[in-house]
Design a protein around this nucleic acid. Structure first.
Lengths: 244, 244
DNA sequence: CCTACTTTTGACCATTTGGTCAATTATGCG
DNA sequence: CGCATAATTGACCAAATGGTCAAAAGTAGG
């Protein structure tokens, strides 16, 4: 199926055979930042990068709004301002595009944890982590929702990524927190579950924004409301960790 | 379209015209507990109730697993052990069935808040509330996920329900918490956001179970793990509220 | 048994949708 | 310019899916 094929459109063919593989990481590198570091290839055309970014952004919004099953390639194409076959030319399939969106999100999501290291001051590091997560929730709600949607439905596309990428990282971070507690620098809490609580408390502002706005009686959270929410989460959790 | 129609299957026709209306509450009463309190109608047949319950349960599981867009009526029918036209006979349309699932969940979800009343002891009431939410998350993960999925996608089906049902209830509960704080019985926190944090921290165990299991390295949370999670959330939040 | 009804079910659409393809148009380069 | 390659796009298809229907099969009461 992938072999016998007219010699035209080599890039697209490559993308399709790639998408068939289960190797999520490879798909990530190639689909999200295609050929940026490839052997003797010409430097990526500006237009290509721009189009891919536009598609990715449109896909993120549409997937966030309707889930994988509810989103349609036609809608994504319209949102990106490109004809539908173009999406397939760049990303191969709906699933590959979806995965590209997810992988990009994962990268962004893991970054804030960089500040959690053994040498840091617990209170300062945790506060910074929480604030960064809150900032991300408000700045990129669509990305958060696509991620949440994927988890909600059992993570069919990135179960292996969770185990191979997220779990090792979390083991390290959990060890840092445990060390802080062993040194008596914070109250004893379950460090793994502390992360779950922080993730939940922060991302709820992106994922369940409608519910929050409905309860608060506002159309959306303005700067002041965002600051209030951030302050609430930070102080509640820090106090919960005996870091007030 | 709904008018000219052979006189047969009156119930089904009624269900369809009902589903067309935007009145979610009416749909709730009729679809979830059909004709239980209707005028001179015969007592509901046992079989009917059993079938409706089976469909509702199957729908909950399938909607939770694939979202509204990704779920198919055929799959729900198979899960319920009934032929597909039967679903339409009982619930009229996919959307009406989806809404019936949501409305049932909302009712269950609001109940635990009953224990939050001004006369109660803050610490005891909050702990009981959190424990009940955790219990629900573990006992009915599918319901939680359908609800989360609906919110995630902007609550197209129950935006009005949120404003008309959830918001009034929360105003009352928030007032209770504020009173407790005014009486100096707990640390000052933003009471609205306290609820958002509790919801997020508890329901994350249902909604994002895969992620939690992936990080913890287990296939699912057994009784002991559930108890540990519950203890963590309870103590973290109570301490955060100055109720330790 | 008969009558009026509810319920069940296999077969059947119309529409939507992911994906394909061949033809056409840019684009870079020698 | 002329050639090869990359990118674009309108038209199209096979499969899936929500929903429909009419006929058959219960079922309760007289």
């Amino acid at each position: 199926m992938a072999a016998a094929r007219p010699a035209a459109q080599p890039r697209r063919v490559a993308a399709r055979s790639r998408a068939t593989r289960a190797d999520a990481v490879a798909t990530l590198r190639e689909a999200a930042e295609p050929r940026s570091a490839e052997a003797g290839a010409a430097p990526p055309r500006r237009k290509r990068l721009a189009h891919e970014a536009a598609i990715l952004q449109a896909a993120e919004r549409v997937f966030a709004g309707a889930g994988f099953g509810g989103a349609t390639m036609a809608e994504i194409a319209k949102a990106a301002g490109l004809p539908k076959p173009n999406l397939h030319y760049y990303f191969g399939s709906k699933k590959a595009l979806y995965r590209a969106v997810l992988e990009r999100t994962l990268r962004e999501w893991l970054e804030p944890a960089d500040c959690i290291v053994a040498t840091a001051e617990p209170r300062e590091a945790l506060e910074r982590y929480i604030r960064e997560k809150m900032r991300l929730s408000f700045a990129r709600p669509y990305a958060s929702r696509v991620w949440a949607n994927e988890l909600l439905h059992g993570a069919p596309e990135l179960r292996t990524t969770l185990v191979r990428t997220l779990r090792p990282l979390m083991r390290r971070k959990v060890a840092v927190i445990d060390q802080w507690m062993a040194e008596g620098r914070m109250a004893p809490v379950d460090s793994s579950h502390l992360f779950f609580t922080i993730w939940a408390a922060t991302q709820t502002y992106a994922d369940f924004e409608v519910q929050i706005c409905a309860v608060l009686g506002c159309a959306s959270l303005d700067r002041a409301a965002q600051a209030r929410a951030t302050q609430h989460v930070v102080s509640l959790i820090l106090r919960g960790c005996g870091l007030a």
